[in-house]
Nucleic acid binder design. Structure first.
Lengths: 340, 340
DNA sequence: TACTTTTATGCAACCGGTTGCAAAATTGTT
DNA sequence: AACAATTTTGCAACCGGTTGCATAAAAGTA
């Protein structure tokens, strides 16, 4: 492979200047139609292809956006990244991907890397470990667009896209109550993460609204996983009160709940089970698991749109927008003992 | 935000040249320890951060790799990308992500975009539509490292990382035979994609080896999906021969098979079911689905390693390597009527 | 035809680093 | 102390575009 052709080659071949060539290639209005065509033709002839690196350096815009997510192994994030990429691609942005692997130091490093790469903006969801947020403030300080989604942090003065998790918890609980369940358990995480706390608050609110007691024996705080769902359910079943429904902090936990109930020969949906996230598998496990959809795609889309809007503004942090998506209740067998 | 500090600022502050600063920051051995320390200290003081764009332009290396996958919505690809990113990050490479969305023209565009971005290499898995491969040849022609994984194409003269899909089909079938299943059905795609064809060939080989007949009535070619699994199973059940096991072209199809068998009140694993991919959900549906693990993570890792190896060579296409991973049989309830 | 406007192009600096080669500074040798 | 060998640093070109400003060319007007 001989050296790649540059605008200098085109200019030389045509006996014009590189500035003219540059303008022709970028459809700058001040160029005459005639030369534009000449340049385009010659560019094609020489198999020219821009060097975006050079272009970025001189223009100061990289047309690249950085995305930091905990891990692509979590389907929700893969889905969100999918949508972000799909949306931004339409506007000629490329996506630099960085996984924090749920580690604070990796996340800090990710921000550093992306800033060094001169991204035009960063869309991020925080790692479970993250407490300090100076690295995010640095992004803002540099005047780059920053958007936080799903796993947010109240102290970051940047636009946010998230689910109304309170509403999610409320919806799930209210649905159970409407189905006649009264003694409702909840297996969730003991970590202080906003989304999980909010879900729980929604749960509490729905109970209060229906004048139902919150039964502490039915509430387990630990991990979120199939295993944790099983253990949690076993623990609940040993308490003096028998639950007639259990909410899983996420769908994996809910699967564990289902397995434990089956093992204990407790019928579902006589005893109801619901989870959060509406994972792919939720619809086809037995019984099909009711869940609250987290709208990963919509969230990714909104992030992308928000970025496109911000990047156009002189001062992106003028008024900080907050997009709160409504959760969607997906009713399936595991909670429907009345209708259906 | 005032302008970012550059090596010029550091040089000026220290009364030395930018070349010296550059060398100090890059740990070039020809620099004296004294000045290196001075530069590093001043860099920290001024909160300096490299501009990788500038660095890339002048050095000719972007330290970025492009990854093209059909879509992150497919868990296998998300998982592979996860591993690629994780592995390459260790070696200071960043990852530009591009989804072809199973579209040929998008894929072509992806290659173009990544080349323009001056990536040091591209790791790709082909879209279902792709027949022409000139865009990949362009990558090779430019001397950039190209690695194809999973969805490969015989005419691309680049290293490949893939699963031994023949072996996968063979393993699945042999396992069924060992479990005493004799009338084995297969629901697969009608598309001519190597991996699926290979799986089927493995199926045929295992049957032949065991002197079992290949029962055409039990073979359905169409789509791969839960729906297709259900439809396919219904079709098979209507044939004159009743199957005692059915293989799903992927785990989703296998889930459909399970659902259809349940609906027809046919017991599993009296009638066996096995799929391919070992999706997350496979282990916890009822009955737990046996499957062939596709080793997404391992595949990603191997791609990364292969790239790191190639990128060091003067002529990356000297001898083209091919990494073929062995599939792993995951035995679960859905096929284990003997032991366990 | 001469002069003003309005395009279209060229000039040249700039973006922020990297790197081969030469020159200067140090160190070593006798 | 003089000279050679070695280590450090500086010089300057280069990577491949972009863009504000000036100038040349084309078009419009009187």
């Amino acid at each position: 492979m001989n050296k790649k052709t540059t605008i200098y080659d085109i200019a030389r071949a045509l006996g014009i200047t590189v500035s003219t060539v540059s303008r022709a290639l970028n459809n700058v209005p001040t160029i005459s139609e005639g030369t534009r065509q000449l340049v385009l033709a010659k560019a094609k002839e020489l198999n020219y292809s821009v060097n975006k690196i050079a272009s970025s350096l001189s223009s100061g815009r990289s047309n690249t956006i950085g995305v930091i997510v905990p891990t692509m192994q979590i389907h929700f994030f893969a889905e969100a990244v999918h949508s972000i990429e799909k949306e931004l691609k339409k506007h000629n942005y490329s996506l630099l991907l960085y996984q924090s692997n749920e580690s604070y130091s990796d996340e800090v490093n990710g921000i550093k890397t992306l800033l060094e790469a001169q991204v035009d903006g960063i869309i991020a969801s925080l790692s479970l470990e993250t407490q300090q947020i100076t690295h995010f403030q640095e992004v803002i300080k540099q005047g780059k667009c920053l958007i936080i989604f799903d796993r947010t942090h109240r102290d970051i003065a940047a636009p946010v896209v998230k689910l109304n998790d309170f509403e999610a918890g409320y919806l799930a609980t209210k649905h159970l109550i409407e189905q006649g369940y009264k003694k409702i358990g909840f297996i969730t995480t003991n970590k202080e993460i906003a989304i999980f706390q909010d879900r729980f608050s929604g749960f509490e609110a729905a109970l209060k609204e229906a004048d139902l007691p919150q039964l502490d024996d039915l509430i387990v705080r630990g991990e979120l996983s199939i295993e944790a769902g099983i253990k949690g359910t076993e623990q609940i079943l040993q308490s003096s009160i028998q639950p007639d429904a259990i909410i899983g902090g996420d769908d994996f936990t809910a699967v564990g709940i289902i397995q434990a109930l089956k093992a204990a020969e407790i019928a579902i949906p006589a005893t109801g089970v619901i989870g959060f996230a509406n994972q792919t598998f939720s619809s086809f496990i037995t019984p099909a698991l009711s869940s609250i959809d987290q709208q990963a795609n919509k969230m990714g889309e909104e992030c992308a749109k928000l970025f496109l809007k911000m990047v156009k503004q002189k001062n992106p942090y003028e008024d900080i927008e907050q997009v709160v998506l409504d959760p969607i209740l997906i009713k399936r067998k595991s909670t429907c003992r009345i209708d259906k």
